[in-house]
Structures are given as structure tokens and as C-alpha cells.
């Protein structure tokens, strides 16, 4: 029954037992927290991209409503306006919308009117601004006035502020949730450290009495919980990335997730998760252990 023990091959064992029964539940909780943190991060990134997409679209175009004067047909007024606007610096393209399109746009508001042709329906000119130096609404208005056109420039930038405010709120909400989850993870680890110290009291006491410094003992718990959290973080991050990839495959820019477009590169955002989890756990375990050891001494 005697096993040959070779001191030359001996490697020091860990001061804390490798496996404590508590661990699987703790790993699960931390992994779930990491999963939620990663989902929050992905959500914030996607919301940000959506907001940027919308605002790009909005700031890139304007609509001009042209009201024909008595001496002019709507078509020629719209044509003249488009021609004028195309000449304004900072305008990439100006296109008068056909009569049918204009009517289709206002039809829902008018209901079943017998003959729209009898109504002086205003014409629309869609203006696409150049990307680098977009023209301002005032510039467009000034140009139209000098040509004697009665027109209103519908500046989309009023919507822009709303979208950007919405995006900012989403971002701050995301950051808040993220911090909350981190704090919860830290609390869970602090709790687990306390339980671990209590369960390993005899180890802590022996090391203490043998002359181990408090920081040395605290570091044991710090290392242990950091390693646990890194593993749990990896699992949580992988699960979140898998879910993100699923959304991307299922819908991409359109389809299932038109409001929250997920890009493949977004999935990289989960990479720091294991490290961040390890860091939070290390700090929580270190502080908790140091406090408890000081009480014990």
C-alpha cells in the first residue's frame, strides 16, 4: 500500500484546498452576471450604431416643400426649385418628387377625396447634402428666396437632437446597469470570500501563527477568486457572444433585429469580460480577506 514518494519530484501544494464545495454555485452566479454584463455592453454598442445610422441619414438630407405661385404650375415651380437647390454649395443632389409621390404622401391625411388633382398640392424636393460640407437650411432658404420661390425647408436636424438624446439615455442606462452588475459580482465574491475564510479558518490561523503576513494570506484568497472569476467570465462572455452571433445570423442589419443592428465586430466587446471579472473578484476578495484577517489577529 506504500506509495513511493520521491521528494525530488515534490511540488508544493496550494495552501488553500483546490476545490471547495461552494464553488460550483459561485461560478454559476458569476458566469450569469458576466453574461448579463456582456449583453448590456452589446446592447449599448448596437443602440449606439443604430442611433448613428439614423442621424447620418437624417443629417444627410432635407425636404423642401414648394408652393406654386398663381402664375406658375406646381411642376415648373418644383423643377425650378430643384434646379436652384442643386446649385447651392454643399448640396449633392436635389430631385423634385413627381406629383403622384406627393399625393401619395398626403393622401392618408385627406382621406378619400374625389379628385386630388383639383387641390393645389404642394410639391416636394428631396435634397441630398454633400457629406463633407453639408449646406445649412438657411443657405437653402436664401437661395430659394432670391429666385422668388415660395418654399419651406424641412430641416431634419430637429429630429436629430431627439435621436441623439435617446441614444445618450440608452448609453447611460447601459453604463448604469453595467456598473450595477459589477457591484453585484463584487458583493457575491466578497460574500464567498467571507464564507471561504470561515470554512478555511484552520488554514488561515495556522498560516498566521506560523508567521505568514496578513497580505500573504489575503493574496491566497485573491488569487483563488480571481482565477474562479476569470473562468466564470469566460463562460458568461462566450454565452453572450454566442447569443449575439445568433442574433446577427438570424437578422443582421434587418430581419429580426432592425432596431439593434449587431455587427460581427461587436462580439469582440465581450473579450475583456474575463479580465474585468477577475479584477473585480480580486479586489473584492483582497479587501474582504484583509479585513477579516485583521479582525482575527
Amino acid at each position: 500500500m506504500s506509495v513511493i514518494f520521491d521528494p525530488a519530484r515534490w511540488r508544493p501544494a496550494a495552501f488553500l484546498p483546490e476545490r471547495d464545495t461552494r464553488d460550483s454555485a459561485l461560478v454559476f452566479v458569476v458566469a450569469v452576471l458576466c453574461f448579463m454584463a456582456c449583453l448590456t455592453a452589446l446592447g449599448v454598442i448596437a443602440a449606439d450604431r443604430a442611433a448613428r445610422g439614423w442621424s447620418d441619414q437624417l443629417s444627410g438630407e432635407m425636404t423642401v416643400i414648394v408652393r406654386p405661385k398663381a402664375n406658375e404650375t406646381p411642376d415648373s415651380a418644383a423643377g425650378r426649385a430643384a434646379e436652384t437647390l442643386a446649385g447651392v454649395p454643399g448640396v449633392a443632389e436635389a430631385r423634385a418628387l413627381e406629383r403622384e409621390k406627393a399625393e401619395a404622401l398626403i393622401a392618408p391625411w385627406l382621406g378619400d377625396v374625389a379628385d386630388l388633382a383639383d387641390l393645389p398640392v404642394p410639391r416636394l424636393v428631396a435634397v441630398t447634402l454633400s457629406r463633407e460640407t453639408p449646406a445649412t437650411a438657411e443657405a437653402l432658404e436664401r437661395a430659394l428666396r432670391t429666385r422668388g420661390l415660395d418654399a419651406v425647408v424641412d430641416d431634419h436636424t430637429t429630429w436629430l437632437a431627439d435621436i441623439q438624446r435617446g441614444a445618450a439615455i440608452a448609453r447611460w442606462l447601459g453604463i448604469g446597469v453595467f456598473l450595477l452588475i459589477s457591484a453585484a459580482a463584487a458583493a457575491v465574491v466578497a460574500f464567498a470570500t467571507r464564507a471561504g475564510l470561515a470554512a478555511r479558518r484552520e488554514v488561515v490561523e495556522l498560516l498566521h501563527l506560523t508567521g505568514a503576513e496578513d497580505a500573504f494570506i489575503a493574496r491566497l484568497f485573491q488569487a483563488r477568486f480571481a482565477r474562479m472569476a476569470a473562468g466564470a467570465g469566460l463562460v458568461g462572455a462566450a454565452a453572450a457572444a454566442a447569443l449575439g452571433a445568433g442574433l446577427r445570423l438570424a437578422g443582421g442589419g434587418q430581419g429580426l433585429t432592425p432596431v439593434l443592428p449587431v455587427a460581427w465586430s461587436d462580439l469582440l466587446a465581450v473579450l475583456p469580460c474575463p479580465l474585468a471579472a477577475a479584477l473585480v473578484a480580486a479586489v473584492a476578495a483582497r479587501l474582504t480577506a484583509a479585513n477579516l484577517i485583521r479582525e482575527l489577529a
Binding site: 514518494f5 521528494p7 515534490w10 501544494a13 495552501f15 483546490e18 484552520e202 501563527l209
Partner: peptide, 9 residues
């Protein structure tokens, strides 16, 4: 006060 999870060595 021996540590039960460690070998005698």
C-alpha cells in the same frame, strides 16, 4: 493543527 488537504511532506 495539521492541514488536512496537504500531504505530510
Amino acid at each position: 493543527r495539521l492541514l488536512d488537504h496537504m500531504s505530510a511532506f
